[in-house]
Write a protein that binds this DNA or RNA. Structure first.
Lengths: 334, 334
DNA sequence: ATCGCTAAGTAAACCGCTTTACCAAGCGAG
DNA sequence: CTCGCTTGGTAAAGCGGTTTACTTAGCGAT
């Protein structure tokens, strides 16, 4: 492979001149640039990025730490981030931590050694402080989707409370009064926020919230299944459930099917996230859609601004959500 | 950050000694290694990978080119690859090409400049020769899932024909004789193979294949929808369809719903890929499962062997598939 | 007493690019 | 005529490792 020096020799100038020319750090007369261009073309010169990186300390790569790349939500987010980063000429290192704190920590440490220029951090487990400590030492970090408290960096979240509010209102407007909430781990940021939105909608309509109808556990299908069993056995049961994740909603759907109940006739159900499968299940799931592509876009934009040195004030961006109405919610029976 | 020289000075030895010690290229008495270890600990030394890479020309990173990371099939594959690569201490650069040949080419070229040590290539469009030409120039390449003819590298595919055969047999065994095939683009490798498996099963049972019941188009929901409309209007229609992708199957499912037909009562349906949503739709989709994790594992294993210099003979690995029986196929009516 | 060998290192070049100085020629102004 | 500025460059020192080729001390054998 031809090097910068080869090009310089061929063009009859110094390597410095070629380097500076290629990086727009010098103005040269056209006669010289023509010679350099010709040399580059002739030798099929490609800059050695490895050398460039060592020399500049920049890698033109960002890292993405995600809980689970096989989860369609995070996969779509990763796709959006990859796409936006590519536009800026940046490569993306993706680490899938599979929900393990150890792997999250290992990933962040590895990324330090890889000298990536920025880090987009996602987690779905409440932090015990270890992530925060680690992230505080790194620069050019953006926290996405779920909070990690105690780190002074830009964050990008969706309007969790508003989403839950819209979903709950949708149920109330359909005539429901006995509404249960099934959500993720209690200490998780998004869980708290969605719960608040739920509470606000209920309060606004003067509806009571029954503590035994608020089930917090995990954003998983299994928990949805379990929660449905707990909520729907016995005569005294809700006529509608707000599931704060489509995975939970699917679990509930399965359980109802097994129990011989029909959605939405016997039970109305609204999910959250609008996963790709939400419209594929039967009945198609009414769900709160998050602007995934926009989240990815803004995360990359923030990172790029930080890399460029325009450190944005540690900001909090809220992206709007939208209720996608399908067929899993209807009027209550009777 | 402390450098190798800092460590050497602190330990009272030369940088060479430290470098060789850390890379196991020298045997030193314990008294010396203790001093070096102490210096490393004291200075919290971490090797600068950028420098190491320039020096050695190796990056300890592999690249993954995938058609669409937001597609659960490829996302799962990416997750498996990432996991296995991490075990070997390798990072993974993921490029999502969104089905564009231009982006595939750009990704491969970018990766050359990134000096990645290996490349796992996936595509879902038949190659016009451009990919092959480009890939022939690169080393340590593995082709995964879908063929790119004319490149002399290890390939890893699943038993496409066997999968289609199993699925078709399943339908025949249930009593079907009027079976249609809906699949992807005609020239695609997997499409050909699955078609062969279908043909073999039909021939074995002495069943004719009606050319107008073999619809080749795209592995997409839209094409499934379109194909169902073509196949199911009019009185003379198949009692079962083999859809060579779950996306196609979903499209067919939608179309039948819209047409007032019921699966599996009026139409039996078998999909291919066993996507995560296959068991979520109603009726749950009988589908051919591919060993995604194993595909990823083997791809990384092959790459690692090539990087280590044990160039394996350009080989063809076939991984077995499995029919997952759910509820979308039953006996024909009447 | 010396030869040869091993153990325990080291000096210096190199990977390919960037960047900080620095310089020389030409030219217009005073 | 010469001072200072602009234009068009250059030499050389990094960046932080790896690697090749070499050295030196010590020791056992002859």
């Amino acid at each position: 492979m031809a090097t910068l020096s080869d090009v310089a020799r061929e063009a009859g100038v110094s390597p410095t001149a070629v380097s500076r020319y290629l990086n727009n750090r010098i103005e040269l007369p056209q006669i010289t640039t023509d010679r350099i261009d010709a040399a580059i073309a002739k030798l099929d010169y490609r800059p050695n990025l490895l050398a460039k990186r060592l020399s500049t300390g920049k890698t033109e790569a960002i890292a993405l730490v995600t809980p689970e790349i096989a989860n369609p939500f995070f996969a779509e987010l990763a796709a959006a981030i990859e796409q936006e980063a590519e536009r800026h000429g940046y490569a993306v290192y993706i680490s899938s931590t599979r929900g393990s704190r150890e792997r999250e920590i290992a990933a962040i440490n590895r990324l330090r050694d890889q000298h990536v220029d920025g880090l987009i951090m996602m987690t779905n487990e409440p932090d015990d402080g270890r992530l925060a400590t680690l992230l505080r030492k790194r620069s050019n970090v953006v926290i996405l989707d779920e909070d990690i408290p105690g780190v002074d960096v830009p964050r990008i979240f969706v309007e969790n409370a508003q989403g839950a509010y819209l979903a709950t209102r949708h149920l109330i407007d359909a005539g429901h009064r006995d509404i249960a909430l099934v959500s993720g781990p209690e200490t998780l940021f998004s869980v708290k926020e969605r719960r608040e939105g739920f509470a606000r909608a209920m309060a606004e309509s003067g509806l009571p919230i029954r503590p035994d109808w608020v089930l917090l556990g995990a954003y998983t299908r299994a928990f949805g299944h379990e929660a449905a069993q707990r909520l729907l056995t016995g005569p005294d049961r809700p006529s509608a459930i707000l599931a704060c994740s489509d995975y939970i909603a699917i679990g509930i759907l399965e359980a109802t099917r097994r129990m011989g109940l029909s959605v939405p006739t016997d039970l109305s159900l609204v999910g959250f996230d609008d996963m790709p499968f939400a419209e594929l299940v039967h009945p198609a799931l009414t769900s709160v859609r998050q602007p995934i592509a926009e989240m990815g876009r803004q995360a990359v934009e923030k990172i790029m601004a930080m890399i460029a040195g325009k450190a944005p004030p540690p900001s909090l961006t809220r992206l709007p959500v939208e209720l996608v109405i399908r067929h899993s919610a209807a009027q209550p029976k009777g």
